[in-house]
Structures are given as structure tokens and as C-alpha cells.
Nucleic acid binder design. Structure first.
Lengths: 238, 238
DNA sequence: AAGTGGTCTAGACCACTTG
DNA sequence: AAGTGGTCTAGACCACTTT
């Protein structure tokens, strides 16, 4: 039923999730790994192949195999789907509007896969593209998972938010589900996006997962699509 | 530079694109294929692996490897992203509103990757979910690519539209890019979706590609998201 | 029983990066 | 030069489907 290479894949995922191999760190070379798991190098490679396909590991010929690092490039190509009407993909400038600790609503708890009314951090950001505010993000994350997170830590971070999750908490976001619909802008969204309350905005609910499938973030993005689109590209390259 | 398995992959794609192996037909078995290409079975499998990952080929243990067929299941999981707010995924009921032949606008020609003002078919459909009209589709396809297509042929087809493309014209859609934004409903969309003209609707532009990367369809979908969402799921399974 | 794909082995040699 | 991943081989045996 369960093949060898799947078992190896699971063990590698467990090692990454438990921080046995740190983000950015190199794995042992393939012959050593194969020996350690008592499999041939072909079988070891098959397990690593799939983790590379999922962007969890990154191979570099001549250098080694590394745990995928969250950086701007990865964020832009894997998680950021907003681009100009003309196809221009620009890294957004982020401005934090609010940082607070509180109790999750029942809906938020459900999205986070938690029971009861757990303690959460709420972070609100405006994302600017080409000088114009385009996206208003409301992020909800478990206070237990991100224990000790402070506003200063958030503001003084370098790089993306997902990079902060990874470097400061060992949490690597590897994929996300999104649900998109139209909603009338609430007062807050309207203000941040330069719209009138009730104007139609794109409402995106994102549930982001770690390497071992746990929910590590719930985010509602509100987007003004007057000049930008939400873009989904085909997987394959060919 | 170009590895053996990539070359084999390209040859297999060419065979599929040229109809050398028909949709639904079985490929020769792996040992025969490997012999034909003068490679080991491992190398042959690597090429086929990638085509299976792209849903171009389908393997069935004990039976064979087949050119992927367009059916409801494939359409629902690969191309249809609209689902109920509660997560219910339902196959839409389709009602054709219009079928016409005409000249492409410059914008349409550009999306189709054609020059000038080529002859095109325009097909308009209303898609109904749970008894309510939710999606209004405007499809534009090259009259040259789909030579001889008739309204009767379209209306009397069995299965999905992509199944018609495949069985009647040998055109297999394998992936699609989509751009999503909010637009005010025009008179026609509003009427079909039971909205007032100017109401905000989700506007989706889809460019669909064949196995060899050619554009085979341009489609604008207009969606009423009052009860349904546009959903993007994470790739990996784990 | 015969035929198919699925997994696995134990190497070999090549391409690339680094010291 | 040494170490890494990238490609490829020529088998073996297993799991599944069909006849």
C-alpha cells in the first residue's frame, strides 16, 4: 500500500516541520540520504522530486538541496496573484494599519482549524502598487502558534510576512486555498482603498497551510480591481 | 542541453497534437515505446510522468496509458472554479443563448493569438446552478480552427463543450490562464443573470490552450457571486 | 496466464559549483 | 580536484486488469 518513496517523503516533511532541518539549510547529499533511509538513490530522488515540485525543497545542481526559503521571488510567483491590467507584476509596498491581540470569532476559529474562541493576532495592512492603494489585508493568526509576536517585530522585519513566519517561528507556508467573490466595501476598506463605502470590491479569503498541512494563517484581502486583476496562471510550462 | 526525456516528451506531445494517437486511445506499452525511442524504460517513464502530471496522459495500472479524455469529471476539477458558498460543487446546466459567425475584434484576435480580423464563432451560454442563473459565458473561437462547426452540432453534443472540441475537432484543452476583476454588468449580462444593468459582476477572461500551447478558446465569463464563489485550490495534495 | 503499469535497485557518466 | 545534483541504463519483482 504505502510505497517506500512516500514513506521517505513523509519523513522528510516531518523533519522540516519539526525544524530538524532549518529553512534555507542544506539536506545531506543524496547518497548519504539514500544510505540513511536504506534505499537506492533512485528511490530517494523520487521522494525529493515531489517535494521539489511542491516548492518545499529547492535543488541546485552542484550546490545541494535546500529547504525552500520564503523570499520576494517565491512570494510573487506562488502567492501574489494581483497584477496590473497590462500584465505588470510589481512587488507591493506594505503599510501596517493595525496590530492587535484578541479572541477569534467562531468563523475565524473554524477557518484556522481551531476550536473554541482561541487567542489570535489581527494585523491589517494596506498594499500599494504604482503609488496607489490597491489591496487591504486583514490577517488572523493563532497567538499560540506565533507566541510572543510583537508589533515591533512585525514592523522591523525584513522581507515578506511569510519570511517573518519562517525565520522567527519556523513556520513555512507552502500552499494556500482562496475563495473570491464580490462584496460591498465596508467603511474601513473603502477608506484605505480610496473608495466610497458600499462600492464593490474583490473579497478574497485565503487559508494558508504549512508543510505538514496545518492552517497557519487566515487572511481576507479586499482589492480594488479598477486598475489591477486577480490572475490565475496555468500550472504546466511545456 | 536538451535531455533525452524532454525530447521524448516533445515527440509524444507532437503525436497527440497531430492526432497520431487519438484522444482516449491507448499508447503502446512502455517497453515498446522505450524500444521505439531507443531509451531505457526509466527514461521513457520520466517523459510520460510529466505528461501525466499535466493531465495530458492518464495511466491505469494493468490497462495501459491513454490520451486524456475531456469529460465532466475533468472539466469540474480542472477548469470549473465556481462553487457554492458552502463548498458545494455542482455541474452546471447550460443553456445556449446565441450562436453566430463574425469577425474578431482586434482585442479578441490578440487574445486568440491571431493577426488581422479573423473569422470567429461566438457562442453565448447561461450556466445555471441550483436552479439559478449564475454564469453568463461569451466564447470566441477561431472559425479556421473549428472549421464547419454548426449550431446544431453544438446543441446536439453530448457532454461538455471541451468534449465537443476534442471529439469533433481533435482539439484537447489542457490548461487555461484566467484574469479576474469586477465590472458593471452590461445589459445582456444583467438580463441573463437576473441583475440590474450596472450591478457589479465578476468578470473572468480565460485563455485556453491545447497540448502544443496554441490558444484554442477565448472566453469571458460574467458571474453573479451573491451565492457562489470563484475558488482556487492549492496544487499539492500531501 | 498474459499483459499492463508501479516500484525499486545498483550502478554509470555528465554538468555544475566551489575551494 | 572534490563534491553536488542531473540524466540514463538494464534489469528485477510487484500489483492490477483482462482474457
Amino acid at each position: 500500500m504505502t510505497s517506500l518513496y512516500r514513506e521517505i517523503k513523509r519523513q522528510l516533511i516531518a523533519d522540516i516541520a519539526n525544524g530538524v532541518v532549518a529553512p534555507g539549510a542544506a539536506l545531506p547529499n543524496e547518497t548519504d540520504l539514500a544510505r540513511r533511509f536504506n534505499v537506492s538513490i533512485g528511490t530517494l530522488r523520487r521522494a525529493v522530486d515531489e517535494l521539489v515540485a511542491d516548492h518545499i525543497l529547492v535543488r541546485q545542481q552542484g550546490r545541494g538541496t535546500f529547504v525552500g526559503l520564503q523570499d520576494r521571488d517565491r512570494f510573487m510567483f506562488q502567492f501574489f496573484r494581483i497584477e496590473g491590467r497590462d500584465g505588470l507584476r510589481e512587488f507591493p509596498q506594505l503599510s501596517m494599519q493595525n496590530f492587535a491581540k484578541g479572541r477569534a470569532t467562531p468563523a475565524e476559529a473554524r477557518q484556522l482549524g481551531l476550536s473554541g474562541t482561541p487567542s489570535v493576532f489581527r494585523i491589517e495592512n494596506v498594499l500599494t502598487l504604482q503609488g496607489q492603494p490597491v489591496i487591504f489585508d486583514r490577517i488572523v493568526i493563532s497567538a499560540q502558534l506565533y507566541g510572543g509576536l510583537t508589533q515591533a517585530q512585525f514592523e522591523q522585519r525584513k522581507g515578506t510576512i511569510y519570511e517573518l513566519y519562517q525565520t522567527d517561528f519556523g513556520i513555512t507556508i507552502v500552499d494556500a486555498d482562496e475563495r473570491v467573490r464580490i462584496e460591498p466595501a465596508d467603511a474601513q476598506s473603502a477608506q484605505h482603498l480610496g473608495l466610497a463605502e458600499g462600492d464593490a470590491v474583490l473579497h478574497i479569503e485565503r487559508v494558508a497551510h504549512t508543510v505538514d498541512g496545518q492552517v497557519a494563517e487566515f487572511r481576507i484581502s479586499t482589492v480594488n480591481t479598477q486598475t489591477h486583476d486577480y490572475v490565475v496562471r496555468a500550472r504546466g510550462k511545456r
